[in-house]
Design a protein around this nucleic acid. Structure first.
Lengths: 188, 188
DNA sequence: CAGTTTAACTAACAATCGTTAGTTTTGTAA
DNA sequence: TTACAAAACTAACGATTGTTAGTTAAACTG
């Protein structure tokens, strides 16, 4: 099956991208990690760009779909926000390496892929922003600057992939509970 | 003065590094942005590595020194935490581009520079961690998992450089006040 | 077993990389 | 104006980059 081998390449590449970034990883680096020669990679993929766009767009779509689902179902702003945080944690734990590329290497996407990514990212943020605004309107959330709240929560969620390793003993459900509590109720 | 020209190079390079990352920016890119040829850069700097280490180590030292100062002065954990957030905001607003490199390109440092950076980063995190633990002991801070609190606040602060541009109208002191409130007291 | 596809290989390409050497221009001080 | 230093230039280097062409060995399919 071609698919398996291609997926292997993407997974291996993601690990390397996470450590050094897209530009600092050569096709020969990726090949070496798979115990083949660089030219052999091209039996399975079109080029380096395809590896990146496979990685980034796939996980970007997951985020976009999840957010759409949450905002289409009913629930208070706070319930939605909690769900959003939990979903973000789930996706991060399943695709830690891909999320590194999504965070740090998206700007190396080309042409339509780049436009698609930016559109998805903007839509995701807009959904997030609307939930917060809704929460402020219904007075579930303090009337702080919405952008500060959005930025604060989103920063934490986006960097979660880095802390996933250190997490170690912390159970997923405990992590969810603690993080939801800290982000929503603060620390005092 | 040699110093001025070298600083110009570092500033220009920082802006490019922020957009595409250290590895994706060539010496020719930097030179072009300064309207000179790449070879001319070497009249002022030793090489590409020196640009990176100037950028990263300088601002890393600022963070380390500020944290040391805060922990050496007396004050409750919460007062220290507040001060730490404010100082972090100040440094970020003054060195937004350098912080991009510090966050994303530190792994491309070489030899002793890399070791020095890691040591400073670890020390910074350890100081931060101790303040939080102190706060939990004195019951100023909720008895949540310290690592989750540390990770959450630090993620937000480290990503602040990205939101600095969008901040736009938001006054520095307003930003400080809002962010301190959100990070410490939560949003409900 | 024969025929065909899959996936590896070697070799090489044009482009670009960081950097060096040697030279010329520019600016300043006597 | 002459002398010197600073800072630009041209040209080129060896290494590495992503990628292609052509070939060979292994693995299915009839």
């Amino acid at each position: 099956m071609k698919h398996n081998r291609k997926e292997e390449i993407v997974i291996v590449a993601a690990k390397l991208f996470k450590e050094k970034g897209y530009s600092a990883v050569s096709m020969r680096d990726i090949a070496q990690q798979m115990d083949i020669k660089a030219a052999s990679l091209y039996n399975h993929i079109k080029g380096k760009q395809e590896i990146l766009s496979s990685l980034v767009l796939h996980v970007a779509r997951e985020f976009t779909n999840s957010t759409q689902t949450i905002t289409s179902q009913d629930g208070t702003a706070l319930q939605r926000l909690k769900k959003l945080i939990e979903v973000h944690i789930d996706i991060t734990l399943h695709h830690a390496d891909a999320i590194a590329a999504l965070n740090n290497d998206w700007m190396h996407l080309d042409g339509q892929d780049l436009l698609d990514f930016i559109a998805m990212r903007d839509q995701y943020e807009e959904n997030f922003r609307n939930i917060i605004k809704q929460g402020i309107q219904t007075q579930q959330i303090k009337a702080k600057e919405p952008e500060v709240i959005l930025f604060s929560i989103l920063s934490t969620l986006r960097t979660l992939y880095l802390w996933n390793e250190k997490r170690g003993k912390l159970e997923v459900n405990v992590l969810k509970k603690e993080l939801v509590a800290v982000l929503i109720s603060g620390i005092v």
